[in-house]
Design a protein around this nucleic acid. Structure first.
Length: 792
DNA sequence: AGCACGCCGACT
DNA sequence: GTCGGCGTGCTC
């Protein structure tokens, strides 16, 4: 009887294929193998072994010498595939993509002095030798240039050396040497080698000069050990003094890590309460155990500040994982993660699929963030999948947030998650006091957006040498453009949303689908010239007003669509944090990005933005965003204030912000949603919607799409007739992470939405559904009973 | 996801 | 006459 293995291939198929194992080939579940697939070969993973014969099967072509995919990760792939209704191969693809695309690491080399004088001496050559002598002098040497503390690719080379922890210098080499794939290294006995590029920069010459010296025999090129990635972390490096709230929370988390068992914990703490320090203690415990920690971040691009804090606490930076890594760095990081060398990884949601050797903790920072949702391909919410992975790895998972998602709070209230609260700010800082400005009575004059109260507040803050933030979550110049003569409104041809004027770019832009058109001179409807009016403010327009009202203030306007990209944004945020600007104007990215030590006043220019959305989650979202934005004010010894400009000061969200009573707000909010027939939280559903006209149905579906959270494989479901609906109506079914997955039309027909997971499960489910309950006139309402935490 | 096969429009 | 568009269907 021939041996047979079932191999899952990273393509869009759900079943593992069977292959015959040639004699002498050693395979185990998790082994990476090359198998023939159609006309080509693919690298797949052995999912199961069998003894049964299969004579007409193709053969496994080869084994790859990659470390096998461990059981918990294989189980995770299966679980996520079922949950998201995706083919298992597509989920596997996410877990092995790194291996497939990564380039082998480039050998690192550096130069050392041979002591032999060069045949000819020039100015540049002298500078090189002098620079090398300085860089290799043990007196001036703080850390070798291969400093493992510097893990970020582009920055690694030029970043200043970090002081080494006491007794840490030798620890570094001990940690790096043993693990270099067994490759022999030309080790220099005394001075550490210096990379050519670094030496050239230090000497102020080109690499050519160094090559000349090597040619001459004055310098020698030697191989250097690879830098460590995410390793060399010291749990006792920068011990922090915790306050009375933090201490028990940190001890609780550390104990959970020590117990090596699964648990899910909501770590809820107001902005500035020191959540990060608390979960750092859990990471410290992971390091003491010699295991690995994963920290998920919603926006990895803007986490420079976090990396610095991490380095200050543990003596080195963690490994980073996100889409911006180069191929080589990706490969190095992957090896470090798989071998266990990388003890801590900070990453975007894709890091959840990394092949950790021994994962001891997952932290999901800012767990309420929408950025955790993957919206194409395999649709999932990384926050929920993190809980699943943690369970499979038998590790605790910490969900950290100042403003948890409603469903996470419900899970904490019902005891499904443990709940740690940090009620007060760190040190002497207190939460900012929040007041409203009633735009009906004390608003600005027509065409202006800053109320007298806001202006007075800003002037006072600037007068004291403090910073003020104007927060308006609306990009562009004006959200609506209309014709004064005929009333024509500019709408998007694709999605019927208003087109937003961007004056810097001289364009009208749809923020929904990205459609862009130039701003015309004439009204396209009535051909009238100069009749187009901008209505309402965006940050660009606010910047215009601020320049008028505060001509002397150093003002910075930030918006995610400004040219220059992430790097520019990061630099500007850092400059603002250093106090190089008096007045910062920005969209939600300033609410999240950074701490501003001298910021004492936040003016929310239009607190009603977002409240009018059809999105049933609008209130929750607005509460989270404004609480975060206003929380930027007041640090350390200075008191913070916030002003909310609003047309509806009595609105529950505004009231909750002013009173600071989050508890009551969350309670009201979940009550209200239950009464509105929305799925009770903690048991989220895929929803099929229906309404009078197609446009409204779609709008409603889209809004609900933002609310539903996940969908299991076709488990129990209920069908209820709506009745009395017009013929020809479309009904949209929502799936994992709130994506529309199918549109039901008329009677038994349905088509999958563009982004729908293409699994047999889903199609079979829909067919079964429609067969079991033929839609009544007009349509059906389908609620798929989903419990995203049903695994607990 | 790839990659084949397959059946209709404008080009060397 | 063929090169090539991307629609459909399959991969042990």
């Amino acid at each position: 009887m021939a041996r047979v293995v079932d191999v899952l291939v990273p393509v869009a198929v759900d079943t593992a294929y069977s292959y015959r194992v040639p004699a002498g080939l050693v395979l185990e579940p998790g082994s990476f193998v090359s198998v023939p697939l159609g006309t080509r070969h693919a690298t797949g993973v052995v999912w199961a072994e069998r003894e049964a014969g299969g004579d007409n099967l193709k053969q496994v072509a080869a084994v790859r010498d990659w470390p096998p995919l461990r059981r918990p990760l294989r189980d995770f792939v299966d679980w996520v595939a079922r949950w998201t209704l995706s083919p298992r191969g597509m989920v596997l693809r996410m877990a092995v993509r790194a291996q497939e695309t990564a380039a082998p690491p480039a050998p690192r080399s550096g130069v050392v002095a041979t002591g032999k004088p060069p045949a000819r001496m020039t100015d540049a050559r002298a500078r090189v030798l002098a620079a090398l002598a300085t860089m290799q002098d043990p007196q001036t040497l703080i850390r070798p240039p291969a400093a493992p503390a510097l893990s970020l690719g582009e920055r690694g080379a030029e970043a200043p050396p970090t002081p080494s922890p006491p007794g840490g210098g030798s620890r570094h080499s001990a940690a790096t040497e043993g693990r270099l794939d067994g490759r022999p290294l030309a080790r220099d006995e005394g001075a550490p080698p210096v990379p050519k590029s670094a030496l050239a920069e230090a000497a102020g010459c080109s690499v050519g000069v160094i090559d000349g010296l090597i040619e001459d025999g004055a310098l020698a090129l030697v191989e250097m050990p690879q830098e460590t990635i995410g390793g060399d972390l010291d749990p006792g490096f920068g011990n922090t003094v915790l306050n009375a709230d933090q201490r028990p929370a940190a001890a609780d988390l550390a104990a959970r890590v020590a117990s090596r068992a699964f648990s899910a914990i909501l770590l809820e703490g107001v902005t500035g309460s020191g959540k990060t320090e608390v979960y750092f203690e859990a990471i410290a415990e992971v390091l003491r155990q010699g295991r690995q920690a994963l920290v998920l971040m919603p926006e990895i691009a803007l986490t420079g500040e976090f990396l610095d804090r991490f380095a200050a606490r543990f003596g080195a930076r963690p490994a980073e994982w996100h889409s911006g890594l180069t191929e080589r760095r990706r490969e190095r990081t992957l090896r470090a993660v798989a071998s266990g060398e990388a003890r801590a990884v900070v990453g975007a949601r894709s890091a959840l699929f990394l092949p950790f050797a021994d994962l001891g903790l997952i932290v999901v920072d800012e767990e309420h963030e929408g950025a955790y949702k993957q919206e194409d391909g395999v649709i999932y919410n990384a926050r929920d999948m993190a809980v699943v992975r943690a369970r499979l790895e038998r590790a605790p998972v910490v969900l950290a947030s100042a403003t948890p998602a409603l469903e996470t709070r419900v899970n904490a209230e019902t005891g499904r998650y443990a709940w740690l609260k940090l009620p007060s700010r760190f040190g002497s800082a207190t939460l900012p006091d929040i007041a409203t400005v009633d735009l009906r009575r004390e608003g600005p004059p027509r065409g202006r957006w800053l109320s007298p109260k806001a202006i007075a507040g800003i002037e006072a803050a600037l007068g004291r040498g403090e910073q003020a933030l104007l927060f308006l979550n609306r990009r562009g110049y004006a959200p609506l453009t209309l014709c004064r003569s005929c009333g024509h409104r500019f709408e998007c041809p694709n999605c019927s949303a208003w087109l937003v004027e961007h004056r810097f770019r001289a364009a009208l832009v749809c923020h929904h689908c990205g459609h862009v058109e130039p701003r015309p001179k004439l009204c396209p409807e009535c051909r009238e010239a100069d009749s187009l009016t901008a209505c309402g403010p965006g940050v660009e327009r606010l910047a215009e007003e601020a320049a008028l009202v505060f001509p002397d203030a150093r003002t910075l306007t930030l918006s995610s669509d400004f040219p220059g990209g992430v790097e520019t944004l990061r630099r500007q945020l850092e400059a603002a944090a250093r106090g190089e600007f008096d007045l910062v104007i920005g969209t939600q990215l300033v609410a999240k990005g950074h701490n501003f030590p001298s910021l004492t006043l936040v003016v929310v220019v239009d607190a009603d933005v977002g409240l009018a959305n059809a999105d049933p989650r609008a209130a929750e979202r607005t509460f989270q965003l404004l609480r975060q934005a206003t929380g930027r004010a007041g640090r350390a010894e200075r008191e913070g204030h916030a002003l909310l400009q609003t047309w509806q000061p009595e609105h529950p969200v505004i009231q909750a912000l002013v009173s600071g009573d989050a508890e009551r707000f969350y309670a009201q909010e979940s009550d209200q949603r239950r009464r509105g027939g929305l799925p009770p939280f903690g048991r989220l559903a895929a929803i099929v919607v229906s309404a009078e006209d197609k446009g409204a149905a779609e709008a409603h579906a889209r809004a609900l799409a933002r609310t539903a959270h996940a969908m299991p494989a076709a488990r129990g479901f209920r069908v209820a007739p709506l009745g009395g609906l017009p013929q020809g109506e479309e009904i949209t079914l929502l799936g994992p992470a709130e994506a529309p997955i199918a549109v039901l039309r008329k009677r038994h027909r349905f088509r999958l939405a563009a982004k729908a997971p293409r699994s047999a499960d889903l199609q079979g489910f829909l067919r079964a559904l429609l067969a079991a309950a033929p839609p009544p006139r007009g349509g059906v309402k389908i609620a798929i009973d989903v419990d995203p935490q049903s695994f607990l």
